[in-house]
């Protein structure tokens, strides 16, 4: 049985325009699914709808079953089933709370740990995201950390309660390219060792190709093509997918050309 089943999801704004239009897909436990699309494609709204976090003024119809719970008709706390990591960790973290306390909050709430057990769970979470010097980081405020460290803290928070589904919404777009590579490796390792399902949202096809197995390409609120990412990249069927692949290939090829002549 799948962990997440989205069926006929439509999200409308106040004037009735469909921002997400009849989107259906499912994620089984341990799957790595990508939602690829450019700005305005509705990919991030789809993720928010899955968590019952749509901004006010938007209404969802269709059905979203997350681990058996109906997230449209009866949204309930998703804290233990699914967690999300956003593009800009600085806005996702509380600026007035140390990293250690932010990671501790969901662990205390959902796993009921206190005292020494809580402290060791926080240390474990920090170690899992490969933050060296964990003690100093736990005592730091978000502005004292680098972009990559902040995103690691956000990931530690997200996985601290052992969710079955991790949603990552453009988690590396704001990061430098070397840090991006490290964070992608980290996500890859976490979902592999934990068996966590991953829903990865991005506009960047090459980035998706590094972590995702199956993917859905979205445009103007609709899914235009679905399939294993390797097939999609090598034999894109839809014209828009082809444009995306060609765009990515352009820069790939330019980089590959360097060094040829010298």
């Amino acid at each position: 049985m799948s962990l997440l089943t989205v069926d006929g999801l439509t999200v409308r704004n106040g004037t009735g325009t469909a921002l997400v239009d009849d989107v259906s897909f499912s994620v089984a436990p341990g799957d790595r699914t990508g939602l690829i699309g450019e700005s305005g494609s509705g990919k991030s709204l789809t993720a928010l709808a899955v968590l019952g976090l749509l901004p006010p003024g938007l209404t969802a119809s269709g059905s979203i079953l997350l681990d058996g719970a109906d997230m449209i008709r009866a949204p309930r706390g998703h804290g233990q089933v699914a967690a999300i990591v956003f593009q800009e960790p600085l806005t996702a973290l509380d600026p007035l709370m140390t990293a250690g306390r932010q990671i501790a909050a969901p662990i205390r709430r959902f796993r009921g740990l206190r005292g020494a057990a809580l402290r060791s769970a926080v240390a474990e979470a920090l170690a899992e995201v490969h933050l060296t010097d964990a003690d100093r980081i736990a005592r730091s405020y978000p502005h004292q950390l680098s972009g990559g460290q902040r995103q690691r803290v956000a990931i530690a928070m997200a996985i601290a309660c052992r969710p079955k589904l991790l949603i990552a919404d453009e988690p590396t777009t704001a990061l430098d390219v070397t840090v991006q590579a490290e964070i992608l490796d980290l996500l890859d390792r976490i979902v592999t060792t934990r068996g966590t399902a991953l829903l990865f949202i991005t506009h960047d096809l090459p980035v998706a190709a590094k972590v995702v197995r199956d993917t859905h390409v979205m445009r103007h609120g609709r899914i235009v093509e679905s399939g294993p990412i390797l097939d999609l990249v090598s034999h894109p069927q839809h014209e828009y997918t082809r444009t995306l692949v060609d765009s990515a290939r352009r820069f790939d090829a330019a980089l590959k050309r360097t060094g040829r002549d010298s």
Binding site: T178, L184, A209, K210, L255, R257, G259
Partner: peptide, 26 residues
Amino acid sequence: GDTDRVLGAPSHPYTRKLIESVPRLP
């Protein structure tokens, strides 16, 4: 230096790390 040379045959370890980090299509 020439882009072809710097990106094609980088001499500094940091340049090499940058180039390796670029995500590419399979």
